[in-house]
Design a protein around this nucleic acid. Sequence first.
DNA 1: GCCGTTTTCGGCCCGACTGTTTTCAGTCG
Length: 582
Amino acid sequence: MNNKQVVRILNQLADYLDLAGENSFKVSAYRKAGRAVEASRFVIADHLDRLLELPGVGKGTAGVIEEIVETGQSSQLERLRNELPQGLPDLLSLQGVGPKTIYTLYKELGITSREELLQAAELGRIRGLTGFGAKKEQKILEAVQNFAQRSERVLRVHALQVAKEIERNLTTLSFIQKMSVAGSLRRGRETVKDLDFVIATTHPEEVADQIVQLPFVKEIVNQGSTKVSVVVDVEGIQMSVDFRLVTREQYASALHHFTGSAEHNIRIRQRAKQMGYKVSEYGIFHDDSEEMITFAEEKDFFAHLQLAYVPPELREDRGEMEAAEQNQVPTLFQQGDYMGDLHMHSLYSDGAHSIREMAEAAKERGYEYIAITDHSQSLQVANGLTITELREQWEEIAQVNREVEGITVLRGTEMDILPDGRLDFPDEVLAELDVVIASIHSGMKQDRDTLTRRLVEAMENPYVHIIGHPTGRVLFKRDGYDLDFDHIFQTAKDTGTILECNANGRRLDLNDELLKKAKDEYGLTFTINTDAHSVPDLSRVELGISTARRGWLTKPDVINSKGLDELQEFLKEKRKKNRKNR
DNA sequence: GCCGTTTTCGGCCCGACTGTTTTCAGTCG
């Protein structure tokens, strides 16, 4: 039984308890225990003796978890399943419909599915119930109808596109003093469910009226004097968007509050409470007075709670509170630290632009160097290069280096690690390359041991510098390979192999959590690369940087922060050291 | 159910909005 399976059962139990009308603090205790299991560094089933170390896990939930691990289920959950129909928890996913509503509808009308709910709403059977009226019935009807098209999470890259369009429009409105996107987009998350904007204004009603009239607003969900919720459609991407309207004085507190995460905010409020304060989205209050303390900037808000400033990407309750208390928040990697991109494709394999075009675009971005890393011969779907073609490419690289000043193009490859574990080029060819990335593009469904061994053997080759997109996951499409990460990270440490944070918006691989684990537990070094297949792809480096920041990476952790000479020296050293070890 | 610099009970983050009520419950983030 893996941790995810335990989490799923704990969450199901919480859903059922919620529907059964159980004390809401008890319900959230189970959800909190679920989050603790999810965040834990060890496999729960192998360390049942350590359950009580997890925050929010006490005797009660520990007993439930033990039972889940030992029997594969929870007797409490099974009992509730016998008492309440199977379909009820599904109804919790309807917008604006919660446990109390669902339970009442079940008790009074026998409703156990979306179909039955739709029918009851259409027949007007809901409006007569105590506490329900025509409007509530209409809302329920819409929630069921919208279920099929309700907004799923969208990729960060798409959410950024929507946010930019909204920002562009907001700047044309009157009475807006200051504004920022907040929420999970500001925290740099790889996918986003909805957007939050915080706006400072002297005229909230007027701003709200202007917002709901913006051309991309498809639906007004609700509109008050401090909050407007709408659904927008920007070039076919539909998202829910909340706008929070506050005064200039309240702005910094509101920005912090709506940036979240929920877990981070809870920690902030607990701390404030211990210090005799109360925190709301508008400011900080003394327990014993009405006076509200406001802040010019977020850093002043943190300072008032005797905390160092925490960048949005770290606000997940993954150790940032402890770091801020001890003034040990790291200076995270930033855009200006990025000196060059070490993974991109050209016309030689499956890229859309020539080496020269890629070099000129990279120079335009201020880079010192790039590596052209076309695919290798076995990856025929991507027009992988034979050794002969690779040598031809070196001539063109030399020519571009002669003709385009101010940037250096390095000879590279993204070489396949073949299904049997062999590499696609022999050592004598690899020795002539400046940058060797080894990646898996086939045999992705092999078992854990086989896949792990393929990566480990690739890292043990002294000519391999980098493992490209190490887990192979593609967001919304496929999970990463089944891998033994401890074995892989240990090998990367022993061989000095660099692991990639691939900035393709569907990959972001390694992801934030694996980056943090690899850094904290193994002290590894990383590279952030776009894997660009065209000139515009070069700009997605920002997605890789926000992921790296969420993984707590700093400038020295990322080799793309090195200048050209230092980088080349570093790549050569890696080979020297490992040839000796071989 | 969890937890303790208000320690074994009594809180648990906090407020906006909506719809239904006539002072509040439910839902959401």
